[in-house]
Design a binder for these strands. Structure first.
Lengths: 187, 187
DNA sequence: AAAATAATTTTACAAATGTTAAAAAATACT
DNA sequence: AGTATTTTTTAACATTTGTAAAATTATTTT
């Protein structure tokens, strides 16, 4: 998924603003297994995923919890770094070879102050992330583990293929054993 | 908490922009028990709470789940209505007599297009809500019910006084019986 | 103040989910 | 291809959490 598709999906921009934005974006590649971000550090970039998939997770004393997958077209960032300049929760591991677009948040912040179209694009970016985060929260609060698994199957069938079940279970908030039990149910 | 305090806490605005914004905001009062919003309707306003407390919840076939409390200084909105103009999940009940500031989203949208300061204010509004929503999600995913209860006690001690425990339990994602058990633990 | 209503806690039991360990299946390596 | 390694499933058991109903406590109404 190329950059203009991604940025346009967030919010359409006039050509001049697109140029300003794209002029500050660089492209990067990393192999599967690469750790892109580390928890407890302030991250000074945001990323757009051109190709590949990543998981955001936190280390707990005895295990780790995956709380988000980001794939082609998604924006990947440490929210707390981006919004309030504080260190975030997330380690980020690339689960496949990835191609990423990178943008310095500092540069973006300047663009927000000088270009009203980019300011509204940034507003939309935050609003769309907000909706997604609320959806995840609602799923967690309102639905059973089984419902969440089947919902994931429907909405993101590729995830089950691309990500190992241990991470999926963690993402769903259950143990891998529970996920196996759910998958074993005949339906 | 008055309007300029609230809007300034979100993001400082130059005087001219404050005037534009405040010119479109009206003030309302409702008694305890009033249902401010209904689920499955597109809501055309957002609210800022001057005084009082509200709970956002969804009706399930046999029970209801409270997923957010909003109080003085908070922004209260149907996220899906505000961001994508779709009907939301939430019923909203006022748990105390409330004084609210009301703003039409349509008007706000126009201001976003014409005033870069207000556009950035709106961006900040979304970003701060995003951080809060992520925090709630993280609490749910990373911490035990007991930890979440004690965290709530620390961060919002007034909530326990102002809101009945059945709603708190629902908010924490546990049954009221479980909450009673947690509260009975000696510490 | 007494009665009625609502909220909270407690109890007993049922259901769901977690933990640990072993078996089976899938994948990677030489 | 065969071996080693990793991932997934299954089994047995422990723990947590839920449900329903009763008991207690608090609040509201008359």
């Amino acid at each position: 998924m190329n950059l203009s598709q991604i940025s346009n999906t967030i919010h359409p921009l006039p050509e001049a603003s697109i140029q300003k934005l794209e002029g500050h974006i660089s492209e990067l590649s990393f192999p599967k297994g690469h750790i892109l971000l580390r928890a407890n550090k302030v991250e000074s970039n945001i990323y757009f995923i051109k190709k590949g998939i990543a998981r955001l997770y936190t280390q707990k004393p005895d295990n780790e919890i995956t709380f988000l997958f980001c794939k082609e077209g998604d924006t990947l960032m440490s929210l707390k770094s981006y919004v309030i300049g504080q260190k975030g929760y997330e380690d980020v591991e690339l689960l496949e070879d990835c191609e990423l677009y990178q943008l310095k948040t500092e540069v973006l912040e300047d663009l927000y102050q000088s270009d009203i179209h980019i300011a509204n694009w940034g507003r939309k970016l935050a609003e769309l992330e907000l909706i997604k985060t609320e959806e995840r929260f609602i799923a967690r609060q309102f639905r059973t583990a089984s419902e969440r698994y089947h919902e994931l199957l429907e909405l993101h069938p590729d995830l089950i293929q691309r990500v190992q079940l241990g991470h999926i279970a963690s993402y769903l908030g259950i143990s891998q054993v529970s996920l196996s039990r759910i998958r074993a149910e005949i339906r």
